[in-house]
């Protein structure tokens, strides 16, 4: 079964085309590593898939439903954004934040406990969320997504700015959610080594779809890797020029 089907998706911010005719699909149970340089359009793609951005051309189907016609399927998606710093004095406890994720059915302690247990944060449930480390805060956001029993998880560079050991624990958790809970995962990352280790498939985007296939097909092909690193370098220099322009 196809969880996501995207056909000829294009999106522009005023005069700048960010996504150009992107088409791809994701099967149930996939753990897709989405790679691409900064400014390649990954976050824009996710924003379109999550219904945060309208105004695109092409179609996005989630669980067979065109999200422009029927937004119900969006409720089956759990989303973990790029890491933001949660203010230290934000008073909500971990338990209160996780409870916010429940948008279907009753808010129960059992659901919250199960989600926190999955991310190994049950003992922290009464602490202020702002007091936790960056890695723990990201796990709280995963628990907030899991508590709604999602069928699809979208993570946008969730491990950026987290130390290596915590990153590895985080990747192990992703693998566990995919293999044990059977959740389809789309995960944007700059960490090629981690994508190579845990993703079942890879999508490489740089405004248009550059590559989409099995992980080993990408990483065992020197030409693809070379083309990717060149495009990353160009994007980096382009951003650098803009910073100083």
């Amino acid at each position: 079964m196809q969880v996501v089907e995207i056909e000829r998706l294009s999106y522009a911010y005023s005069d700048s085309l960010v996504l150009d005719n992107v088409s791809f699909s994701i099967n149930e149970g996939d753990l897709l590593g989405m790679i691409g340089p900064n400014g390649a359009g990954k976050t824009t793609l996710f924003s379109c898939m999550l219904g945060l951005l309208g105004g695109y051309t092409g179609t996005i189907k989630i669980f067979g439903q065109d999200i422009k016609k029927n937004a119900k399927a969006l409720k089956s998606i759990g989303y973990i954004p790029q890491r933001k710093t949660i203010e230290r004095n934000f008073p909500a406890t971990v338990e209160e934040i996780v409870s916010l994720g429940i948008t279907r059915g009753k808010v129960t302690k059992e659901k919250i406990t199960l989600a926190l247990d999955t991310v190994s944060l049950l003992e922290q449930k009464d602490r202020r969320v702002g007091e936790l480390s960056g890695g723990q805060q990201q796990r709280v956001l995963i628990a907030k997504a899991l508590v709604n029993d999602p069928k699809l998880l979208i993570l946008d560079e969730p491990a950026t700015g987290i130390d290596l050991e915590t990153q590895n624990k985080f990747y192990a958790l992703l693998k566990k959610l995919n293999q044990e809970k059977k959740i389809t995962i789309i995960w944007a990352s700059h960490d090629l080594d981690a994508v190579n280790r845990i993703a079942s498939s890879v999508a490489c985007i740089n405004r248009s779809m550059f590559f989409h296939g099995m992980t080993h097909e990408f990483f065992e092909n020197p030409d693809l890797l070379k083309a990717y690193s060149e495009s990353s370098m160009q994007a980096h220099m382009h951003l650098h020029d803009h910073d100083h322009g």
Binding site: L50, L52, A71, L74, Y79, P81, T103, K144
Partner: peptide
């Protein structure tokens, strides 16, 4: 109200 105060973008994704 608490959700919007915590994070507007995530609250919007939740519908």
């Amino acid at each position: 109200l608490m959700y919007v105060t915590f994070d507007e973008e995530q609250a919007k994704v939740s519908g």
